[in-house]
Simulated scan of single mutants.
Amino acid sequence: MSAHRAPLLPFAAALAGVGFLSLMDAFMKEAALMIGAYTATVLRAFIGAGLIAPVWLARRPAMPSRAVLKLHLERGVVSAFMALTFFHSLTLLPLAEAIALSFIAPLIALYLARVLLGETISSAAILASLLGFAGTLVIVGGRIGSGAFDEKAAWGVASVFVSALLYAYNFIVIRRQAQVAGPLEIATFHSGVGGLVLLTLAPFAWETPVAAVLPWLLVAGALTVAGSFAIAWAYARAEANVLVPTEYSGFVWAAAFGWLFFREPVTWPTLTGTALIVTGCWLATRPQRRAAAASV
């Protein structure tokens, strides 16, 4: 297989993973509206772990080393609150709008890489950040202009931003994790650790689930496992700068699923703001893609 064709399969796997997770978001929005974001998030995590853990254990794997376990725990904690804040935002905002705002995560990741890894922030990255900020203002401004930016929407936007900050840090962790553990192991610990972490809040936030929500959560759990597996497999076989652009396909998926499941319209401010944010992300990763191509 040629060097140019090698990334195609990981790229396709990452694209499929984003599609699985976008569909999962639609199922989780329905579940969260029925029983609350917290309870839905906890149950989804344990359902996912229950589906994937037996498959991983059936292979009689060696237990992860202390260093690898530390990575699993780190990502599990981050992912737990990343998921909780995002699913909470879905109960307050349209699906496509929440996904669009979450696209600022790659831009935040640039600055986290500067702080945590000492990487230089280029002029292109600064321009990208400005475009991303402008896109966010357009989306939020569209709500204000339509008179729909109430307290509920404000909390939704704040929840997305917290989730995006955690997801940006997740970008840094997942690449290291994928280099030292297999997809089955990663998916098992991702769901299991996340569920256990959130379970500590049960005395304060748990709501007794109704039977009608179980099919939604079962499908969401299965889609979580499929998406996590596909993305972990892809990140173990291709550089992050090659795969990050697949995240942007999530808006297309979200717009489609938001309309199919909830009849949510996609507004022009949301489309325009998304275009600005995605353009910013593309500019930010363009130098890395050129460098990667030059080294082939």
Rank of each mutant, 00 (worst) to 15 (best):
R60E: 01
F161W: 06
R237C: 07
L57I: 08
R176A: 14
F251V: 12
A49Q: 07
A291P: 02
W155E: 00
L260E: 06
A291H: 08
R143N: 14
W155C: 02
Y167E: 04
L33G: 15
A134F: 03
L15E: 00
W206R: 11
A181D: 13
V296P: 11
G273Y: 01
P94M: 02
I121Y: 08
A236F: 11
A14G: 01
H4I: 08
F149S: 09
S191W: 13
W253F: 15
R66H: 07
F189N: 02
V193G: 01
F11R: 00
M34W: 01
T208A: 13
L184A: 13
E151V: 10
T39F: 10
F87A: 06
L184C: 08
S2L: 06
E30V: 01
L116H: 11
V213Y: 05
F262D: 12
L131N: 14
G280L: 00
E239P: 04
V244K: 01
A230K: 09
E264Y: 00
L43M: 10
P245M: 02
F81Q: 03
A53G: 04
P245D: 09
L201V: 05
M82E: 04
F46V: 03
L243P: 04
L110I: 10
F161E: 02
P64K: 05
L101I: 11
L71I: 02
G135Q: 05
E239L: 02
A232C: 00
I35V: 11
V197F: 14
V42Q: 07
A293I: 09
E185I: 02
M1P: 01
L84K: 12
L127D: 04
F229Y: 14
A238G: 07
R290K: 13
S295K: 14
H190T: 05
S146D: 12
A232W: 07
L51W: 03
E185A: 11
A105K: 06
V157S: 05
W253T: 04
L165D: 01
L110V: 14
R286T: 13
V68M: 04
A125F: 02
G135P: 12
A100Y: 12
A80K: 09
P54I: 07
F133G: 10
